[in-house]
């Protein structure tokens, strides 16, 4: 997760995207550690977003195409309070399985943010302003972590991101366990080859 540039196509959603929209509760039964069942989290990622709001502004844009488990979109652009609701870690996991490289939102609900960082699933980036209306689903996006900028390549406009702050050490290590090993809090050996 320590690369400096992230590029890809945007999938745009609005404010208050809750975890029931990211992965509806009925799907929380698949084994997260079985390679085959894990794909189902990708298949149903973002499937709880109401039809008329899917990919905004007119809706109806599927995040995952029928029969697929990975999305043609790489970066989710949202607004305020992304990931609110339940503590299900299946939410950032579903986005990771779907192939999402980063989420950009103005603010996050704290458990989703924490799960994304500690589990090393997706990079949760914060935009200084609420920018989702300046992006359309399918736009080419370029994120530069060195200069904290997100550029909508399709329109040529750039927006400022907040620095990662406290979370940077854990994100750069690759998650909570990797970080704890790095600072010597848990042994290097545990689980190293599992």
């Amino acid at each position: 997760m320590s690369q400096n540039k992230i590029t890809g196509r945007a999938y745009v959603v609005g404010d208050n995207i809750d975890t029931d929209q990211i992965i509806p509760a009925k799907h929380l039964v698949y084994n997260t550690h079985s390679p085959e069942e894990r794909k189902l989290y990708g298949k149903f990622a973002m499937s709880g977003v109401p039809e008329e709001k899917s990919g905004l502004p007119k809706g109806g844009i599927k995040f995952i195409r029928e029969g697929e488990y990975q999305s043609e979109f790489d970066i989710i652009v949202g607004g305020k309070n992304f990931g609110c609701g339940s503590s299900r870690e299946h939410a950032p996991l579903a986005l990771q399985v779907a192939g999402v490289k980063a989420v950009v939102a103005q603010t996050y609900a704290r458990i989703f943010y924490r799960n994304s960082v500690d589990g090393g699933f997706v990079m949760p980036l914060e935009s200084v302003d609420n920018i989702y209306e300046s992006f359309s689903t399918g736009d080419q996006v370029e994120i530069d972590l060195a200069s904290n900028q997100i550029k909508n390549v399709s329109t040529g406009k750039s927006f400022e991101l907040r620095p990662l702050g406290d979370a940077a050490d854990i994100i750069n290590a690759g998650g909570l366990f990797a970080y704890a090993r790095k600072i010597g809090m848990i042994s290097q050996k545990a689980g190293a080859n599992v």
């Binding site: 503590s87 799960n115 589990g119 406290d166 998650g175 909570l176 366990f177």
Partner: peptide
């Protein structure tokens, strides 16, 4: 407070968790 699976697994092994 509520946490995710990774944080809970960390507690299972260490009895500790970081909190802001």
């Amino acid at each position: 407070t509520g946490i995710g699976n990774t944080d809970a697994a960390f507690i299972l092994g260490t009895g500790k968790l970081w909190v802001k």
